[in-house]
Amino acid sequence: MMGEELTGLNIKDLQNLESQLEMSLRGVRMKKDQILMDEIQELTRQGNLIHQENVELYKKVYGTRDVNGTSKELFVTNGQSIEEDPHVAVHLQLSQPQQQNYETPTRATKLG
């Protein structure tokens, strides 16, 4: 299997050994692929469950109902509540942080 002790084999024996190794390797690859596909399927299922839980939690925290019973989302910006239709796109804009001026006292206390 490690390529050792092949000196006594003729071409036909080497070809048969090579075929056996290729079939074995194909079986190992198929098993590995099946395990990976099963893991991917399970992780996808778990991801979908987590996403659904997040949606439900988001609805519990932010979801409200208007007078007509349709779902509205409640957003808070600058301390004010704004009701938004959940199907309307939200455009966000980043801004630079504001610098705060810290004045140094004119008379600083000297520490010994």
Rank of each mutant, 00 (worst) to 15 (best):
M1Q: 06
M1G: 08
G3C: 04
E4V: 03
E5K: 14
E5L: 06
K12Q: 07
D13A: 14
D13F: 10
L14H: 15
N16G: 06
S19D: 07
Q20A: 12
R26D: 08
V28N: 07
V28Y: 11
R29H: 11
M30V: 07
M30D: 09
M30R: 10
Q34V: 00
L36W: 08
M37P: 00
D38Y: 15
E39I: 14
E39D: 13
E42F: 06
N48E: 07
I50G: 05
I50A: 11
E53S: 04
L57E: 04
Y58S: 05
K60W: 10
Y62C: 03
T64G: 09
T64D: 09
R65T: 06
N68A: 10
N68C: 04
G69E: 12
S71E: 03
K72Q: 02
K72F: 03
K72T: 01
K72H: 05
L74P: 04
F75G: 01
N78W: 14
Q80H: 13
Q80D: 09
I82P: 00
E84N: 03
E84C: 02
E84I: 05
P86Y: 02
P86D: 01
H87D: 03
V88D: 11
V88S: 11
V88T: 12
V90H: 09
H91Q: 15
P97H: 05
Q98I: 00
Q99A: 03
Q100G: 02
E103Q: 13
E103Y: 13
E103F: 12
T106M: 13
T109G: 02
L111K: 14
G112W: 12
